[in-house]
Amino acid sequence: MEFKVPTMAELMAAGEEPEILFWVGCAGSYDERAQKITRDICKILHHVGIKYAVLGTEESCTGDPAKRAGNEFLFQMQAMTNIEVLNAYNIKKIVTGCPHCFNTIKNEYPGLGGSYEVIHHTQLIQDLINEGKLKAEGGESFKGRKITYHDPCYLGRANGIYEAPRKALEVLDAELVEMKRCKSNGLCCGAGGAQMFKEPEKGNKDINVERIDEALQTNPQVIAAGCPFCMTMLSDGIKLKDKEQEVKVLDIAEITVRANGL
């Protein structure tokens, strides 16, 4: 990276406070594909000059997959450990790169003593576009390209956020096409509820294939995602359909970075 990503520990040592904490999440930290998205989110933060920081090695799993798998004990252990760290740094506002982290910190941490203003990175991008700090200039042109957006369950149905990611795409002057099942009726990619970490039960089709079939019906050049798990599932689906050349699966942060040439 061309710039250094600041950590909370460093800021604290320098006696500074960030405007916003970027919660990277496990996928964003370790998954190779998701790491690219993480770096792109940093590029956006860096570009607009928001004072931000990450927890780095002090971050740990929010506990979401443990909770959805039924292990409330492990979830709360993770949650309280994270809350201790967040509160010690006096964090007020958090942006996440993952809808699962977003949902957990926003909805399930307050009851355990961790109350923060939490936004997802697509909401941050929308805000920056609204404030005129981000445009779609100076980079790759998406004008007229066919883009379909896949709603992550934990952003959409779970939290009612349907507009922010779409607003971030509208600025591209691209041709936005909706899948038949979209917004509150969107079909899951198949990874939620800890499914990401296990083989699917016996059936006649994999959920991500069902979703990719539907996405491909819109004849897209780009399938836009907003979740690292959806990214994995959709990318796997595209690979299976041998459409990697024609159709790109990109996170909204990646599209934004490309459109702005960051």
Binding site: C26, S29, Y30, T38, R39, C42, V54, S60, P65
Partner: peptide
Amino acid sequence: QAPWKYSPADRLNWAEGN
């Protein structure tokens, strides 16, 4: 502290990449 078998010490390694 992650659902995969990675070392917590490597959590910030993404920042080194491009």
